[in-house]
């Protein structure tokens, strides 16, 4: 099978999976919202108005206002940027670390492989959330620290996946012929094998974004997520939690935003996986 038939097979399978298509559309919309934020947010998300505190949804404030009279809709829209940034940067870091370590240990094997995989085992046995909590609290919560810490504590799955792909791919004909032609290891790893090993990485990255969004909200609940007044879904939700009985709108809208985002990424990720190879276990 050549590349193009593989691709068309992928699309045919993907389109058949309606949930995945819906997930993909939602993800696309989220991107659009994040990019167009200043245009679509009706208010300055930080504009305080103590005369309109905890107002229920109305025409002027479709999502209501929070405990400082800020417009929830605008905050949720601005929050989408933060959530996406956390998701993408964290997953980007994890993917880069995972791909490099996985590729090298899969390709070279030997002691490097042993050490790396042992390290993966170790990282996998430490409760990651504890690690994130400890590091962030010691460094100080802030969006960059959160992204970095989530990234460096979630690369292990990618490393294993990439290693497994490399193990099976490195003995394949196209690799052997490239080597016979005198290509450098670097070239073989990054130009020949890696592109063929990327599909499971893509799936795990899409799923990872969903995970990172959830971790941010959990950190916000504990008070060490993205710090107010910067709006993140997690910290809007946390404000809402304390007012849940009198102002449901503060927690419901960011809650739905998180829920839809996580669901969309998961459906999309699963859809991609099933379309590439339903037996992939990620």
């Amino acid at each position: 099978m050549n590349q193009s038939t593989l691709k068309s097979l992928f699309w045919r399978r993907f389109k058949k999976n309606r949930l995945a298509v819906i997930g993909g559309i939602i993800v696309f919309c989220l991107f659009a919202v994040a990019v167009l934020t200043p245009l679509i947010a009706p208010y300055n998300p930080d504009a305080i108005n103590v005369k309109h505190v905890l107002e229920s949804p109305s025409i002027s404030h479709p999502f209501g206002t929070d405990d400082l009279g800020r417009d929830i809709l605008s905050r949720v829209i601005y929050g989408s940027r933060i959530s996406l940034a956390v998701g993408f940067v964290a997953v980007g870091i994890a993917t880069i670390i995972g791909v490099i370590l996985g590729a090298l240990s899969g390709y070279y094997g030997g002691w490097f492989d042993t050490v790396t995989m042992r390290f993966v085992d170790i990282m996998l046995s430490i409760p990651t959330f504890f690690l994130i909590l400890a590091v962030i609290a010691m460094l100080e919560p802030g969006i960059w620290n959160i992204m970095i810490v989530i990234g460096i504590t979630s690369w292990m799955g990618v490393a294993r996946l990439v290693r497994a792909e490399f193990l099976s791919l490195k003995e394949r004909e196209f690799v052997l012929s490239a080597r016979a032609l005198g290509a450098s290891d670097f070239r073989i790893i990054f130009r020949h094998i890696l592109p063929n090993a990327m599909s499971p990485v893509l799936v795990s990255a899409v799923l990872g974004i969903a995970g990172a969004v959830l971790v941010e909200s959990a950190l916000s609940f504990l008070g060490i997520g993205v710090q107010p007044p910067t709006a993140s879904w997690g910290n809007i939700l946390t404000i809402g939690k304390d007012n849940i009985e009198i102002a449901w709108w503060i927690s419901v809208f960011p809650g739905i935003a998180i829920f839809i985002t996580v669901l969309a990424y998961n459906l999309l990720g699963e859809g991609i996986r099933d379309s590439i190879d339903p037996r992939l276990k990620i």
Binding site: D46, I48, V50, D67, L68, E140, I224, Q227, P228, P229
Partner: peptide, 27 residues
């Protein structure tokens, strides 16, 4: 929350007279 909200209001008010304030919360 009471203190963080106070800081947020001060930040907002000072912005209106041309002072830029950052709020940082610490354990």
């Amino acid at each position: 929350n009471v203190r963080i909200n106070t800081a947020t209001i001060i930040q907002w008010r000072l912005a209106q007279i041309g002072i830029k304030v950052k709020v940082r919360t610490l354990e």
